[in-house]
Design a binder for these strands. Sequence first.
DNA 1: CAGCGGTTGAGAACGGTTCTCACACGTCGT
DNA 2: ACGACGTGTGAGAACCGTTCTCAACCGCTG
Lengths: 148, 148
Amino acid sequence: MTDPEPTHDIEAVFREKGIPFTRQRRLIWDFFAGADRAATITEAADGLRSEGVGQATVYRTVALLGDLGLLARVQDRSGEICYTAPPIGHSHPLICGVCRRVVRFDGDGDVKELEARLSAATGFSIYGHHLEVYGICPDCRREEGAQA
Amino acid sequence: MTDPEPTHDIEAVFREKGIPFTRQRRLIWDFFAGADRAATITEAADGLRSEGVGQATVYRTVALLGDLGLLARVQDRSGEICYTAPPIGHSHPLICGVCRRVVRFDGDGDVKELEARLSAATGFSIYGHHLEVYGICPDCRREEGAQA
DNA sequence: CAGCGGTTGAGAACGGTTCTCACACGTCGT
DNA sequence: ACGACGTGTGAGAACCGTTCTCAACCGCTG
Ligand SMILES: [Mn+2]
Ligand SMILES: [Mn+2]
Ligand SMILES: [Zn+2]
Ligand SMILES: [Zn+2]
């Protein structure tokens, strides 16, 4: 598991790549990076409308941040697609399927050996993997206790 | 009753649950189960239109098969959502990012230990995980030659 | 501070998914 | 085998999330 880490210096990333850094991009980044749980694009657009951010800009910026590796796409228990800002470096999300709270961990030690076996067995050249773990966080488990 | 076969006896599953088994459901099942690679709903609908299967029925049936655990949702390199009929039992897909050919493997031995650590460290009750490995199959690698 | 080129917002367009509803058909009791 | 019932189905409309268009705006550089 990773510890509480500093977020990316997004302005520096943009400057380094020569990509204009706008008020909207900062707001959208802050929306995702400032949350401790994944959010949908619709939620971001709704939350930023009052700040004068258009929905097309939210879509464009989420795609841009995704390309830059600054936003990861995950999904909750209902299959809804959400985005979360990962810390620096490679990690995987442990997601509460109910409230979408995200805890990051590094599981590559477990996967690397598996990938080597797969490559040897199948002849595939492996270029990546996708690992998410789903659970119910203590808070949500408490609230769901009464029901099934 | 006993099915030592590697593929699901879908008709028996339906009968056992008292769910009507129709011509369309057989066709849609065959479309996914008869392929060695994942396919999108759109592809299934296009491929079965000439058989007189409506697209609404394809959507409904894919959802139904998913609920029954007879179809697994995966995604290719571009993030496109596809479906593939897994063999009996729990497994994970190794997907060729180029042609979407799927090879299944059981990687739970590697994940189980990880999940135990995560559960202990976070207090989450873990109900599932999503693991896909991406690669290029030997055939596609040959066709593409060397690359970056 | 002026000029350029990328970015933005409003709304239209687009396309995948779901809904509606009359009709067809699978299932089961007889 | 037959008939009645209840579920499934197809065509097309509706719905809604996403992308596109384009004129105005603004961040960046000099
Ligand atoms: Mn990893
Ligand atoms: Mn597994
Ligand atoms: Zn939770
Ligand atoms: Zn391939």
